[in-house]
Design a protein around this nucleic acid. Sequence first.
DNA 1: CATTTATCCTGTAAGC
DNA 2: TGCTTACAGGATAAAT
Length: 277
Amino acid sequence: METVRDGLQRHVSGRTFETVQVLHPRAARRHLAGPDDFAAALTGGAVGSARRRGKYLWLPVDADALIAHLGMSGQLVVGEADRPLTPHVRARFSFTDGGPDLRFVDQRTFGHLSFSPGGAELPSAIAHIAPDPLEPAFDDDRFAARLMRRQTGIKRALLDQSLISGVGNIYADESLWRVGLHWARGTDALRRSDVVRLLGAVREVFAEAITAGGTSFDSLYVRVNGESGYFDRSLAVYGRAGQPCPRCGAAIRRDKFMNRSSFSCPKCQPRPRRGHW
DNA sequence: CATTTATCCTGTAAGC
DNA sequence: TGCTTACAGGATAAAT
């Protein structure tokens, strides 16, 4: 997401929307007034500096904001305006300068675009999203206190974007592996030193992912590529069931949890006696 | 109130 | 071959 934000900043910020087309109603489903109202609200708007919090991106547009969440399969792509429409283009934005357009492409339609008041600072529509640990607004002490007050499992808490943002299923598994914590470990039984180490691991994983994403970034296309170099080279446990743990050699296990998979090392991350499933 | 589960979606791949 | 099923998972409404 940070890679996409950077691409938006370089290719879209400073330009002015000329036309806005919603090609699939689901893309703007969070805009309750409907796709036409969404398009009208953005048409003619001047785009400011691209911002990000966790998995959310937004472009300030005049005094408001265009918010994007890419979900699982979403992409924001900038390219020559006259290129053909591919099947999964859900929205299209052209610019008054007649240059490359911006397209929201999303195969599985879990992503969405929305329009919200409050562009320069955090838009009101995503005010409930906590800071992500790479931004200055993240308060380590506050996070630790809120986390240890919860009665749930550590991974569930890590995935709660109102507590800490930017951590998804993959990064949660990788971070927990790095600090040797099982996904079901109770948050109320964590020591403060565990939380400090875990935050360090999350920041490491984020930083490495950004570095890997940046190296594969094309100068013209703004893309989210789930199969970037990072995924192949740097994942220790995610998607590696049955393969050896890079640290101890034990076979990586896979558990079903929260309608998804959790990967962990049975030796480095032993099951807690009182786990939160 | 706090916490957990079900649901949305579609291309790919595995199973029969 | 062709059909069916499982899977991927972020956010949130609904259920507990």
